Computed example of a mutant assay.
Amino acid sequence: MVDKVLIVEGKNDRKRVKKVLNEPVDIICTYGTLSEEKLETLILPIENKDVYILVDADDAGESLRKQLKRELPNATHLYTQKEYGQVETTPFDYLTDVLREYFEVKETGQESRF
């Protein structure tokens, strides 16, 4: 059973993060918004798991992060740099450093083989 959940905004974010992770993690895509229906189907089932949030460093990402902070106050927030903007364009080495503190990650360079 996977106890860690990572919330990202979109499919490309999920693909990029999967290339770095070296352990099973449920990765949930919000597709940028959280309706009441999504909250019930996505958020409620994970409230008792270790939840991590990694969203884009833009206005939409910050808005989503604020909503997630209200719904999941115990979640751990991870950040990309504003200069990278989006998770999907964050360099692999930086993404690896961000995730390494909480997840098993592939060593830099390994992700390019996938």
Rank of each mutant, 00 (worst) to 15 (best):
M1A: 13
M1T: 09
M1R: 12
D3H: 10
D3M: 12
D3Q: 13
K4D: 14
K4R: 08
V5C: 07
L6W: 03
I7D: 12
I7F: 06
V8L: 04
G10N: 05
G10H: 05
N12D: 13
N12A: 10
D13V: 01
K15D: 12
K15Q: 11
V17D: 10
K18L: 14
V20H: 02
V20E: 05
V20P: 07
V20Q: 02
N22D: 15
N22G: 13
V25N: 03
V25Q: 03
I27W: 05
I27G: 08
I28A: 01
I28T: 01
C29A: 06
C29R: 09
T30C: 01
G32L: 04
G32M: 04
T33P: 01
L34E: 03
L34R: 02
L34F: 01
L34S: 07
S35W: 03
E36F: 06
E36T: 01
K38W: 07
K38N: 12
K38A: 13
L39V: 04
T41W: 15
L42N: 03
L42A: 03
I43L: 08
L44F: 11
P45N: 09
P45I: 02
I46Y: 07
N48A: 10
V51D: 06
I53C: 04
I53Q: 05
I53D: 05
V55C: 13
V55Q: 10
D56Q: 01
D56A: 00
A57R: 07
A57E: 10
A57W: 06
D59Q: 14
D59P: 05
A60C: 09
E62G: 11
E62M: 10
S63E: 14
L64P: 03
R65W: 00
R65F: 00
K66F: 12
K66M: 13
K69S: 12
K69I: 06
K69N: 05
R70L: 13
E71K: 14
L72Y: 07
L78D: 05
Y79L: 14
Y79R: 15
T80R: 06
Q81C: 06
Q81S: 12
K82I: 06
E83I: 15
E83Q: 15
Y84R: 00
Y84H: 13
Y84Q: 02
G85W: 08
G85F: 07
Q86S: 08
E88L: 00
T90D: 00
T90K: 07
P91V: 13
F92C: 01
D93P: 13
Y94L: 11
L95W: 08
T96L: 05
T96C: 09
D97A: 14
D97T: 10
D97I: 04
D97H: 09
D97Q: 11
V98W: 02
L99E: 12
L99G: 12
R100K: 15
E101H: 09
Y102T: 01
Y102M: 05
F103R: 04
F103N: 04
F103V: 05
E104D: 15
E104A: 14
V105A: 05
K106F: 08
K106P: 01
K106I: 07
T108Q: 11
T108V: 15
T108N: 14
E111T: 00
E111I: 00
S112G: 07
S112W: 10
S112E: 10
R113W: 10
R113V: 09
F114Y: 12
F114M: 07
F114L: 13
